[in-house]
Design a binder for these strands. Structure first.
Lengths: 192, 192
DNA sequence: TTTCGACCGAAAAACGAAATTGGTCTTAGT
DNA sequence: ACTAAGACCAATTTCGTTTTTCGGTCGAAA
């Protein structure tokens, strides 16, 4: 194990520790010392690896999000038509995001009105939009989605992200969502 | 003008005054005396007509919402197919809600975590759901929406409300939404 | 290179006092 | 009888101040 990978391993262990304490205490109530203690390090050691608490938080959000994206891409790769890909993508994102967010109940309520969190959110939105964009573009070229002209594709992707974000919020309220998720995906892909 | 209608006229004038001050000061910063003064009445007179500040707030939200619903129903009535009705409904709601909410910038940020506001919101959601339900049912019976069985209709209506709520939040962020609204409605009604 | 304890200043919590404010009640004019 | 208003109360909020906490830095040591 060379220095670089060891460095990466420590960073990883820190964000894994951070995940555990953020799950328990939320963003504001966890201190750097909480994270340090959970990671078995001194507080200032954290600053050797990350330059701020925000950076740690961002790293752990990004990590969770990446895991979800990986799942989505996996399930997307299992189907062939673009329409099916889109449906799989949306269904996976809705279920997985809900699952992940439910593990951070306190954090969920702390994401409003924060400057850099807005930026982070926008970043994730953009990532998601580009993935959807890929699917749409492919389907458009194959003639599967026959009524967008090419310039509308990116707006359509944007709208789909908005729909997913909205449903995330809304679906968190109730329980019997499996059938609803099915309805959502069918609706978006094939219309009412 | 008999007593009953005069009573209604005063109540109306009170909520019109309430609208103006809520627009300027938001929910928490406007006092009952602000409303009373704006309405040209004494504070306790308000309590003769409404039994609490919450009730006034609720009345004015309901009033604004009703106005939006009226506009939506009007534009829905101008088209004949159920698919077109659904598109008109969604487009009108999205544009009108955005327009109305933008007049109450402070109130917008004050609606979180409040017990009775959640109830009120749910009430409006239900109202909206029932309108969509009507459209869906009619279209289903006419065979326009061919792939829901009847029991799924209410879930579909619920999902559509969720989509609208989500897009309300999301679309408030940007400006060039006319084309996006078009994309949304086409997507929901006819699929990608 | 990596870790840590000691330290700093800014931000936030704690807290008690004072001012507001939602709501009631009695009174008065019509 | 009906409508309106001012005085009043209790509860919440606000405010000014003190105290504590916490994110972040630094120098030393392993």
């Amino acid at each position: 194990m060379n220095d670089l990978s060891k460095d990466e391993a420590v960073k990883k262990s820190i964000i894994e520790a951070a995940k555990r304490v953020f799950q328990k205490w939320g963003l504001h109530k966890t201190t750097m010392e909480d994270i340090a203690h959970e990671a078995g390090k001194g507080k200032s050691t954290l600053y050797y690896y990350y330059k701020s608490k925000d950076e740690i938080f961002e790293a752990m959000i990004t990590d969770e999000f990446s895991n979800i994206i990986i799942k989505a891409k996996t399930s997307v790769s299992k189907v062939s038509s673009s329409k099916e890909k889109l449906k799989k993508y949306i269904a996976t994102m809705l279920t997985e995001i809900k699952k992940t967010v439910s593990v951070y109940p306190l954090v969920k309520g702390e994401l409003k009105g924060n400057q850099y969190i807005e930026k982070l959110r926008k970043q994730l939105d953009d990532k998601e939009e580009s993935i959807i964009m890929e699917i749409l573009k492919e389907g458009f070229e194959k003639g599967e989605f026959n009524f967008f002209n090419e310039t509308q594709l990116s707006k359509a992707a944007n709208v789909i992200v908005g729909t997913i974000r909205g449903l995330e919020l809304y679906l968190f309220l109730d329980i019997d969502d499996n059938e609803k998720i099915d309805i959502v995906t069918r609706m978006i892909a094939e219309g009412i």
